[in-house]
Nucleic acid binder design. Structure first.
Lengths: 175, 175
DNA sequence: TAGATTTAGTTGACACGTCAACTAATGATG
DNA sequence: CATCATTAGTTGACGTGTCAACTAAATCTA
């Protein structure tokens, strides 16, 4: 993560009149200014999400569950009784296929998910959340909501909307 | 990545009048609306950065270098002749210590970095970028700049500033 | 209906992130 | 100076992302 690409620093010369540094520059101990607004925005994104992910991990850690595993459980809770085939889970996570198999392996090992060959199409494997899995999620709902609340606490609703819109457009441009 | 937390979907009933869906909801095949603006913004961040990271990886792949490795090389290029002790690299990457050792191991194996015990403080190990490493970076400068350009191409300068500012404040709130 | 193609999923190999335990050198303190 | 805490870094174990190769079932097509 964090490319922090422009961390090139000039020699450690004194800088009698250092220009105003951005918040991000200070965070990554960078002296040289960013080469463009776009670069600063990109690095800001990477940096912000890195911190977010760390926070989320900390929140989940006491329950011995990772972000990925949590994500799969949420998806399966949403899928209900019938469960979902392995690759359908992958789609909803926007992750590449192979990872999901092993991710589910671990959830099965912990008793949170059940797996079963689909009768109609024997290529497929349906994954279903177990009662234990549902209990776990119920416990986690509170902490997770709290974290979601904290994350955006510095922004008012207009700003959140703005952020959502900017991100939508970046993704549209990358698509 | 991508918690996509609220992927809970109601049963697959028809929805004669489906409410306006956000861009993100469509992307992750989610029917149920987000429970809050903050949640949508958070998931938008995770999703956007995931796509960004993927793009960056694709760009680097032909050179057989990963994002992390590239990041380390950029930092060492900035450090110049004297190089940097291992943990100083870690600081600039905001990554936890242990990872850097092995990351640098691979760079050394490929001949892009040289490592040497520091004479004054024999606990430290100074890492320096080699000529081959510098050549590699030079080749990569173009493609990387191009990618940076594309990434934010949908936003004008005012919007980029806005994004940078919003992200700064989110990080400030999480700190 | 036999053979080719597509689809669903698994597995192996490798790069990472992360935590915890561990070594070695410095520095501080009595 | 001997001991102890601190600092720099390494190593092992585990979860995960990613690519490529592979199996097996379903489907298409001649």
């Amino acid at each position: 993560m964090e490319r922090n690409a422009p961390t090139e620093r000039p020699a450690l010369t004194d800088r009698p009149e250092k220009a105003a540094q951005s918040a991000l520059q200070r965070e990554i101990l960078q002296t040289r200014p960013f080469s463009s607004l776009g670069q600063e925005a990109t690095l800001g994104l990477l940096r912000t999400v890195d911190i977010l992910r760390r926070r989320f991990s900390e929140t989940m850690a006491p329950w011995g569950i990772t972000q990925q595993q949590y994500n799969v459980l949420r998806i399966l809770r949403g899928a209900g009784e019938e469960g979902l085939p392995t690759l359908a889970i992958a789609e909803r996570m926007l992750e590449r296929t192979p990872g999901v198999t092993r991710l589910v392996d671990r959830l099965v090992a912990k008793g949170w998910v059940r797996r079963q060959r689909c009768a109609e199409d024997r290529r497929r494997v349906d994954c279903t959340i177990t009662a234990a899995g549902l209990d776990l999620l119920k416990e986690l709902d509170g902490p997770v909501e709290a974290l979601d609340g904290v994350t955006m606490s510095m922004l008012d609703d207009t700003e959140k909307r703005q952020l959502i819109d900017l991100l939508d457009r970046i993704r549209a441009g990358l698509a």
